[in-house]
Structures are given as structure tokens and as C-alpha cells.
Amino acid sequence: MTNEELKSTLGELIPSATFEEGGEWVNLYVPLEEWKPVALQLRNHPSLQLDYLFCLTCVDWKTHFTIVYHLSSTAVRHNIVVKVKVDRNNPTIETVSDIWRTAEFHEREVYDLFGVTFLHHPDLRRLIMPDDWKGWPLRKDYEDPVNMIKL
């Protein structure tokens, strides 16, 4: 589907979504509380079939986090970008690891580096940093006087 078609389909499917202009793919913001059912619909909708989550990351905007999901369809080859805004002080969001299994590792990585809690995740532990590490390294206000070298 072209981006225009995608937009109209998505607009019908998720009335509360807002679209963001620019970028090569359709960007849409989904409200936090609706995310889990929307995610299921995105994968299962017959004309969307977004079965391939190729990137999951988090962006620290200093006031809030956005969790960014890059979705693709292996059958019809279209891509969309879904963004979910999360509160920065108490970042929690529903896991999608039961919908796209690859999210299990990606969510652990985001938890590890940003401190976003994914509810109902099967095994939410630190993935990259040591288990007893303090702080969330990729947040913008993170300071580590020992390991960060300022040039």
C-alpha cells in the first residue's frame, strides 16, 4: 500500500491516532493506554499485516520518552512508524513481546538503557549492563564520572 492508503486505513482503524508529517514512512502517535490492542490489530489486520518489527527504540525528549516501533510487512512490503509517548518520571508501557517475539530482546535493551518498564514482559532484566548497575545510561541527564570520557 502507498503511504496515502496506509494513512486512511490507519486513520479508520485507530481514530485516536495523530499523524506526523515528513519522513519517508507513515508516522503515527498512538496514545499509551490504547497501544496494546492497537499493536494486535496492526499485526492481524488483513490489509496491514505488519508482522515484522524491525526496530524498537526509545528517544529521551527530556520532557517525555517516545517509544518508537518500526513495523514492516513481509507479505505486502509496506512500513509504518508507530510512536508512543511515555511519562519520563514513571515510564511504563505494555509489552509487545507476545505479538512480535523479537521485542523481547529489544524491550530488555530499552529497559536496560532507558529504564522503561514493560508490563507483563516475561523476563525483564538488565541485558547489556551488569545486573547491579545504577542509572539508565542512554538518558540525556545520565552522568558517569568514571566511565564517560570528555574530550
Partner: peptide, 28 residues
């Protein structure tokens, strides 16, 4: 598939950069 995701705020350095590395997904 390697994905490079750059978020720019208009400066000379990226605001946030994410590398979607192939090995990471394959390892899972």
C-alpha cells in the same frame, strides 16, 4: 538488515542515534 535511525534537532551532532543491528535480532 542494518538500520541506522538518526534523530536530528538541526545541530551538528545527532540528537539520538539508534543502530538496529542484525546480530541482535538473530541472537534472540
Amino acid at each position: 538488515e542494518l538500520g541506522v535511525y538518526i534523530i536530528s534537532e538541526g545541530g551538528t551532532t545527532p540528537y539520538r542515534i539508534k543502530f538496529r543491528s542484525p546480530g541482535f535480532s538473530n541472537l534472540s
